[in-house]
Design a protein around this nucleic acid. Structure first.
Lengths: 204, 204, 204, 204
DNA sequence: GATGAATGAGCCTTCATTCAT
DNA sequence: CATGAATGAAGGCTCATTCAT
């Protein structure tokens, strides 16, 4: 992150973050050398240090900013959502998928490069991740309370839903058979059928 | 795979693979140095080369062997399964979760270190993974054909199911609240409710 | 030396020299980075270059100014001294110790960082040092000429005396057992006993 | 230091130490790059690490070994010395000068690169240095006890004597005017006259 | 089969210095 | 005067790999 940020520095700092996302996503944090990063940006490796404190700090900043944006936008989406738990869950699913598909790189990095963070940074991010999981759990709990949902274990169910939804990033390609909207519908369907009160229609 | 297999060599080779799984799982392939690996085994780094051809080959071997075992055991499980698609899906889910929880390290590595493979190795593993996905798709397709399942897109649904089931590895802890069997039931429930013919009970 | 001397610049230039002495003394010339120096002064590293031409020049200036002051003050002290060689030697010793204890940092740097100077700067300083040694040798020679001293080799004796006197800087601490004045007396005693005509009292 | 020391490794390790002494003496520890050192030895920089753990450790080892040798040889010399304090002081002086002139590089490094050591290493060496000073102080104290010496402050006097004697390294050149033996005599003279009971011949 | 020693490429980072603003 | 940004060289150190013994 630029330390003070003159007019030119801001542009370079932004370019570094953009290139960082791209290269870490493509090769992994460990395999991205700062020389590669610098040359992608069009500067010398040593010049990076006018904008970042350390390679590790760059990674942390990228992940942290992603998590902050995710949390804020999720709050915004849920704030605008209707009141029934079912509709709030629909909103969460749509927002999660759309956001994750738009920020594929950020998401991938935030998930798979966690272990490249040192202990304190790791703890910070894990806390934010817990907060995000908490938002989904709150929706599920509310649905259970109103009787809309029939869920044996909210936490595990939340984990499973998130794993499934985030898994989309793994195979989604913009030019693929399904539109984003179809993907959202498909997953909404699966999740809701897995959550809504199931007593009425037992499995064979 | 060990190149030479004297009486002592076999034990060393096995120790290397065991230590490799452990260290790659813990620190990542890129972050595991051959010195670390050797010292975990109790030999010198140079001695590793009596058992592996290169670091890259070790990774490939570990992943390939895991995939081979997974494919073979899945076939075996399905071969012993009843005939209805619903029951075959139940079998697949149970086997997937149980196997994945028992081989957490192998699974993690096979999923997250794919990008550390070079092009030809990568292609080989991806093909095996496609074959595994194919087995689940076959079950789903069969269920659609018999009218047991109502699935809009078999491939996407298969991906989503696998993402969800594999996600268990991320948070499962043996000492956790839920037993393996409960976890299997919970996921079987969710998946089946998401797949079985849904026309009869529309979502609200 | 400051190149440009605006009203504010003089203060900054002085601060740089002061901070330079402190940091070079503490960490050595090679280990003092210009960033450290600048931050001690409270400016940016690039701003240093409004006051110094190069890091090397700063070192040279610091040492040269120290040597100039030492030479000038020694001359002044000896000019005010009585005529006998013994008394002039007493004066030299007192002045050397007092000056060196007051300018510990300068002295240390001038002695131990000589090798950090490039060839021409090195030669200049060595010449000044020779001049200083010459002043002590002149005193000793005079004493030999008058018969006050019995010295086998004036140059070596001068070197040894200087080494001993300057060594005080190594261990002196203001809060130590001995006052400056006691230290001066102690060394005056040792040196004079080593120099005054010794024929009269042979060693056992 | 070689870690295990095969037949070839021992030679390389010794060559590294020799080259290290030479280059640190000539350019200073900070200014000696490991690449320089390696190329002086005739190997690659990375190969150094088969013999040293760290640049800092090399410095420490060189200094420690020097101090150990100095302490041991001083003990040996004093053990063979006659009983009177005067003669023991003579022995100490001769041994100190001869040893220091023969190991000019070691001595210089042990004196001027102390500050390049990190805290624990520094403490270790300073303790050894204190032990060495203690040996001279013991001789002086003994002489005071027998009435041979008249010394106001043994510790300060010891420091001053050591500073003077060690100073010889600064200017001594094998091809110079004075032989080692003459230098020893000259300093023995100066020191003894500074120490022996002085009441009998007050200074003018 | 194991190892000590060597290699060369590469790593992240720091440095003194420059220059447009 | 001061500064933010850039530079290129160099720094200590680690790495996967090789090979004679």
């Amino acid at each position: 992150m630029s330390r003070i940020a003159g007019p030119k520095g801001l542009r370079t700092a932004a370019a570094i973050r953009r290139a960082g996302l791209k290269l870490i996503y493509r090769h992994g944090f460990g395999a991205m050398s700062l020389r590669d990063l610098a040359s992608e940006v069009g500067i010398q490796a040593s010049s990076l240090y006018n904008h970042i404190r350390t390679k590790q700090d760059l990674l942390f900043d990228l992940i942290r900013e992603h998590m902050e944006a995710l949390l804020a936008q999720t709050d915004a989406a849920l704030a605008a959502a209707p009141d029934t738990a079912t509709d709030r869950l629909r909103t969460f699913i749509r927002h999660h998928i759309v956001y994750h598909l738009e920020k594929k790189q950020d998401v991938f990095i935030a998930n798979f490069e966690l272990r490249s963070l040192d202990a304190p940074h790791y703890a910070t991010i894990v806390a934010m991740r817990r907060a995000y999981e908490g938002k989904l759990m709150a929706v599920l709990d509310a649905g259970v309370a109103t009787g809309e949902f029939d869920i044996h274990d909210t936490r595990i169910t939340a984990y499973s839903i998130l794993a499934m939804l985030t898994g989309v990033c793994t195979w989604y390609k913009p030019e693929g058979r399904l539109s984003k909207s179809e993907i959202v519908d498909l997953h909404t369907n699966m999740v809701l059928h897995g959550c809504i009160a199931q007593r009425e229609h037992a499995l064979p």
